[in-house]
Design a protein around this nucleic acid. Structure first.
Length: 417
RNA sequence: GUGGGUGUAGCUCAGCUGGUAGAGCACCGGGUUGUGAUCCCGGUUGUCGCGGGUUCGAGCCCCGUCACUCACCCCA
């Protein structure tokens, strides 16, 4: 018995047990920067993705989970987050108010790919979108927030790759020159087809024999129009001012068609083949593509699983569940009834507390106390009840003292807070 | 979709040139009828992924199949 192919379960102690904590930690810098929480549906009309992400992309042509509802409408589980969040923002008319609109989100995405290390069919992303302005200072802020997300969680070996993909003014001419260059190469059938659909995507092929052929390929960064070049320079200046180091990556291409101008990716070298831990860019034409008004935007998405794998690769601990403060060990029925109430009082006082359920013996219950990670155990037997006290044991110092029953909560609060 | 690797206890794995399944960890109990983490003793857990074939006999050999895994394409 196991879940569907390419999925995993988040359970205590499992590989991705810290998913919720990592999501929160990665978005913390964005929350402080004014990015408000947003949530769009997990499924949308198929057309939204095919138009937004791009008909020619691998994501749309072979990786979508698509199904029909009972009225025969075609729906698709979201393969990425930007399109849905943008659709929601436009639907609500947020773009008619104060700009930029800053949003953050988190949740599962779905792609029907063959699973491998760091790649799943249902995976978690966190993301931000800044809508309504094409100010390069905003690009710098957005990129810096991702940088700070990784730094905040403790990662040190993340590298930022940055480039510009040009815009409607300069990309068509570049694309033509790249196409004629590729026409002069000997390419296999599959690559040739890709060269026709989107010649830029041939550039980041990993096969060494192909890379060798591409050594003299023309680069977008050398063919930028003045506006795009100025934009890129301003973004770089912004990152310098924010103290975010970046590497020029003139061959960087993203798999989603909507990117233009500022484009970036975060990579980590400890992950095996799937080294991208996050990525994003500017998508000024996307709003119109999905049927909205012209509206510039920039954003990123970071992979939660890959972030967790990167933490592991660096030997770092993932943020964990809060550990227990107190574990109560009752002996006998009257003591157990009292223990239930005591645990309730402790929790109400903000103390993380649990007790030994299941009427275990002293030894087993103490063992459970030890495994729980609690700093203190409260031993409460019928003998103690009669004496009006409880035994308070410091599990690390191995020291035990008797405390009057009505002072247990106060005593523990003092020791712990 | 293409290629490589691996499927044995809850977990990590051992299992010889084919002879009918083991260790460590974990869990439970006892040593200590009211004290954990240490120590000692004992105990529970298996359609050897599944189906077929060869053989007196298959965890081991052969065929098929499924799953997992890594890599390509692509991406988080």
């Amino acid at each position: 018995m196991s879940g569907p192919k390419g999925t995993y379960d988040v359970l205590p102690g499992s590989e991705f047990g810290a998913t919720a904590a990592v999501r929160e930690a990665l978005l913390a810098p964005s929350r402080l920067a004014g990015y408000a929480y947003a949530e769009a549906p997990v499924f949308e009309a198929t057309e939204l993705f095919s138009r937004g992400v791009g008909e020619s992309t691998d994501v749309v042509t072979k990786e979508m989970f698509t199904f029909s509802d009972r009225a025969d409408r075609s729906l698709t589980l979201r393969p990425e987050g930007t399109v849905g969040v943008l659709r929601a923002a436009l639907d609500a008319g947020l773009h008619k108010g104060q700009l930029p609109v800053k949003l953050r989100y988190a949740g599962p995405m779905f792609r029907a790919e063959r699973p491998q290390a760091g790649r799943y069919r249902q995976f978690q992303q966190v993301g931000v979108e800044a809508l309504g302005l094409d100010d390069p200072a905003l690009d710098a802020e957005v990129v810096a927030l991702a940088w700070q997300a990784y730094a905040g969680i403790g990662l040190r070996k993340v590298r930022l790759l940055l480039t510009s993909l040009g815009d409607a003014a300069c990309r068509p001419a570049y694309r033509a020159s790249l196409t004629s260059f590729l026409d002069g190469l000997e390419l296999d059938e599959e690559t040739r087809r890709r060269a026709t659909l989107n010649p830029l995507r041939v550039l980041d092929d990993k096969r060494p024999e192909l890379q060798a052929q591409l050594a003299d390929a023309p680069l977008m960064v050398d063919a930028l129009c003045d506006a795009c070049r100025d934009h890129l320079t301003a973004v770089q200046a912004g990152l310098d001012a924010l103290g975010v180091p970046y590497e020029a990556a003139p061959r960087l291409v993203r798999g989603l068609d909507y990117y233009m101008r500022t484009t970036f990716e975060f990579v980590h070298d400890g992950l095996g083949a799937q080294s991208a831990v996050g990525g994003g860019g500017r998508y000024d034409g996307l709003a119109e593509l999905i049927g909205g008004p012209p509206l510039p935007g920039i954003g990123w998405a970071l992979g939660v699983e890959r972030t967790l794998l990167a933490l592991k690769a660096e030997g770092l601990d993932a943020p964990g569940e809060p550990t227990l403060d107190v574990f109560v060990v009752p002996l006998g029925a009257p003591a157990k009834a009292h223990a239930v109430g005591l645990v309730g009082q402790l929790r109400a006082a903000g103390v993380a507390a649990d007790l030994a359920y299941g009427d275990r013996g002293m030894k087993g219950a103490m063992k459970a106390a030890d495994r729980s990670g609690a700093a203190y155990a409260v031993v409460l037997g019928d003998r103690d009840l009669e004496a009006g006290e409880a035994q308070l044991k410091d599990l690390r110092e191995h020291a035990q003292v008797a405390v009057p029953l009505d002072a247990v909560v106060e005593t523990l609060k003092e020791k712990l807070l």
